[in-house]
Simulated scan of single mutants.
Amino acid sequence: MHEQQGRLALLKALSLVGVAATVVVILVGAWTRLVDAGLGCPDWPGCYGALVVPDEARALAHSPDTPLEGAKAWMEMIHRYVASALGLLVIVLVVLGRPLRRRPDYPWGVSLGLLALILLQGAFGAFTVTLKLWPQVVTLHLLGGLSVMLMFLWLHLRLRRCASGRLTLGGVAPPRRRLTPLWGVAAALLVMQLALGGWVSSNYAGIACQGFPTCNGEWWPALDWSEGYHLTQAVGPNYLHGQLHAEARAAIQVGHRLGALALGVALLALVLSAWRERAMRPWLAGLGLAYGMQFLLGVANVLLWLPLWLALLHTAGAVALVLGLALAAWAWRALPPQADTIRQPTEKEWAHV
């Protein structure tokens, strides 16, 4: 038993490290994209056929049509190195957790799900390069990174509950409060808004609209929605700096703004509906603060013409918003369930008491 508790303590610590490390990977990836280093290495997983950035002569011999830009190549490789380290961390978590897999409350399925997700995310990283920054893949790669972060967080929270030994009646976990439909609406709108943000970034539409709240001096300018949200265009040859015309990019930017408005309304409704629970108020206040800061960062990026450091903060704000909603939902589930949702123990469960 003492050995199990020690192993659980190590797994808890490593899973929390995984959350922080994933945030770092997401931000490094965002910076790589912002400085146009996504194609700093034209191949994958190496860089001009090497595991480290080679000299100009070797790069020229490997890819004569793609001149080496050292700073961008190193930025891209640093992103790959930290992402690979994150993958190794997931493997360590699975290996260390395997002896506990038969324990009823151990989140073995979450560990395996995290491993599958990190492998899929690695594939999207490769496709980002081989498909030359195709917007669909770049957007899915961003959503995948956030999903990995959430899986690490979920694993950590489950491990904390497992280590605390909070079990009742024959190893059955205590009942948890159900999420209301409003939580689902808020989560769905957040995912949509994150996808819209990734679409803005991958299509270089961050400053397609000058000014706020108007767009290019108009409340409803000329917008090409069909081209801006055309998801079946051909791949390539290269999406660096984007390929869409101004009206299509403006449509993407306006769509992102409308998504922010819808998300804000949903989060406000969620906060108001759950505020009656005193234990929820710190989590709800944090969620509201994260949304407010993210909204202001988005406005500032438009008004200040997308400075790199501010664009990176906007990505960090998205990370904070995702963590805020996830932690608030976990806190809500941890509240005592309402009377009509409490499941009565079965005779078999009573027999184990």
Rank of each mutant, 00 (worst) to 15 (best):
L150G: 10
V137E: 08
I252H: 08
L325W: 00
G125T: 07
V129C: 02
G29H: 01
A316W: 00
R101A: 13
A59W: 07
E3H: 12
L159I: 07
L89M: 12
W220D: 03
A186P: 00
G236N: 01
T346G: 15
T346K: 12
A260M: 03
L93E: 03
L115P: 07
S164E: 15
L146F: 14
L39A: 09
P45Y: 12
A61G: 08
D224W: 03
L327I: 07
V35S: 12
C215G: 02
L10V: 14
E347T: 14
L312H: 08
G113Y: 05
V172G: 10
V148E: 05
Q338A: 11
M75S: 14
W219N: 07
L327C: 12
R176C: 12
A222P: 00
G145S: 04
A285Q: 06
P42G: 11
V92H: 04
M77R: 12
V19R: 04
P64R: 13
L306M: 08
L270F: 01
C215I: 02
E247R: 13
W330T: 12
L244T: 03
V172P: 06
L14V: 10
L115C: 08
V353F: 12
P337T: 06
R58V: 14
I78D: 09
P42A: 09
I91G: 13
A50V: 06
A250E: 09
L182M: 09
A208V: 06
L120A: 15
V138E: 09
A50Q: 15
A316C: 01
P107V: 03
L310T: 13
T139F: 01
K12T: 06
A83S: 15
G125P: 05
V23W: 10
P181L: 02
L159N: 09
R102P: 00
